[in-house]
């Protein structure tokens, strides 16, 4: 049964009450850090639900409240108000039980650099109550699965960044959790390692039969991996649905015009706005984006108008709506801008 259709920011999905098939249910979570003048509101009523066995994306710019949401769901932090269940267990009433069924891979590395890959995995297995032999067997299985077997007996401080990140994910899986939380799993990885990590993550729900909650500020990552996602902005859910649903919901195409010189963009923006069929124009540096109902039909008009105005674009292209458009539509600002603004703030609400 598909849940969280369309856009219902700040409200629990009506399907959420239907129980057993939900891996995660968050209702009206709020959280403020600090007091008085220094208070930072990280979450102002976040609600969503995640069906079992899917990869669910929590997408948003830096500082949107993604990590705070994950910290609450993993029992690391407590919400000021609201409630949530993970694998059917109430996070506030039974945090101990929640901890047994979740895996948490935080943004920061959690492996021990002065231990080998296998030692890292075995120790985590033992912490979850496995016998030494069981932990070793499971460690070898995971090393094999993430293609780390060859390096298994080397100190992890000598591993590459991509391998270390895979080890962190493997450590989160050692006890066969039902829900795995991946907080920004590919931040800081080079493109090759990122592609590899994507392949691993998308295989997880097939082979480990678990639910994955993934936070990311990469639009492409959410688009590629998540079957459902919510877009979080300034501590609120602004949109939810599958990537396709979200794109379909805003409708139309966009015509992107790349200018040779940023100085032209005010003039060009006014020119584009006057073209019939163009509903909105946004500018991001030297790049302009015009929303149109049908890209192919609008293109000749756009080109003619630019030529008539004496503007020579570097390139003009038609694009199907992207998650970037979805974000722009719901949050009223371009994703990249919001991401940079968020990164400049203090890390507390990241």
């Amino acid at each position: 049964m598909p849940i969280s259709h369309g856009v219902s920011p700040g409200q629990a999905s009506p399907d959420a009450t239907m129980g057993s098939d939900l891996a995660i249910e968050a209702v009206e979570l709020t959280k403020t850090y600090g007091k008085g003048d220094k208070a930072v509101r990280a979450l102002s009523g976040v609600s969503f639900s995640v069906r079992s066995g899917v990869i669910f994306g929590l997408l948003g710019p830096n500082g949107a409240g993604k990590s705070t949401t994950v910290k609450i769901l993993t029992t690391l932090s407590t919400p000021d108000s609201g409630h949530a269940t993970v694998a059917g267990i109430d996070i506030r009433r039974h945090p101990d039980q929640v901890r047994r069924v979740i895996g948490y891979v935080s943004q920061k590395p959690a492996f021990d650099p002065i231990a080998t890959g296998r030692e890292n995995l075995v120790l985590r297995g033992r912490i979850y109550g496995m016998s030494a032999r069981e932990a070793r067997r499971r460690a070898d299985e995971l090393l094999e699965r993430f293609r780390l077997t060859e390096a298994a007996t080397r100190l992890t401080s000598t591993w590459s960044g991509g391998m270390q990140r895979k080890l962190d994910v493997a450590m989160g899986l050692i006890h066969r959790p039902r829900v795995l939380f991946l907080d920004e799993p590919t931040t800081g990885l080079d493109p090759e390692a990122r592609a590899e990590m994507w392949a691993e993550i998308s295989a997880l729900t097939r082979t480990e039969r678990l639910t994955v909650l993934l936070t990311t500020h990469y639009l492409e990552e959410a688009d590629r991996l998540a079957s459902h996602l919510v877009i979080v902005d300034r501590g609120k859910v602004v949109a939810s649905g599958s990537p396709d649903e979200l794109k379909r919901h805003i409708g139309g195409d966009s015509v992107q015009v790349e200018l040779a010189d940023e100085d032209w963009n005010g003039h060009a923006q006014r020119t584009l706005q006057a073209v019939p069929g163009v509903t909105a124009v946004t500018a991001d540096g030297s790049r302009l984006r015009a929303r149109v109902t049908n890209g192919a039909a609008a293109l000749p008009g756009v080109l003619t108008a630019l030529e008539a105005a004496g503007i020579e674009p570097v390139s003009v292209s038609v694009a199907r709506p992207s998650l970037d458009d979805v974000y722009l539509h719901h949050a009223g600002r371009a994703f990249r801008e919001a991401d940079q603004a968020g990164a400049g703030r203090t890390g507390v609400a990241a």
Partner: peptide, 14 residues
């Protein structure tokens, strides 16, 4: 705490 070790420990049964 600076690494993710503490957070990982606190979300485990320890």
């Amino acid at each position: 705490m600076e690494r993710g070790v503490m957070d990982q420990t606190l979300t485990s049964p320890v």
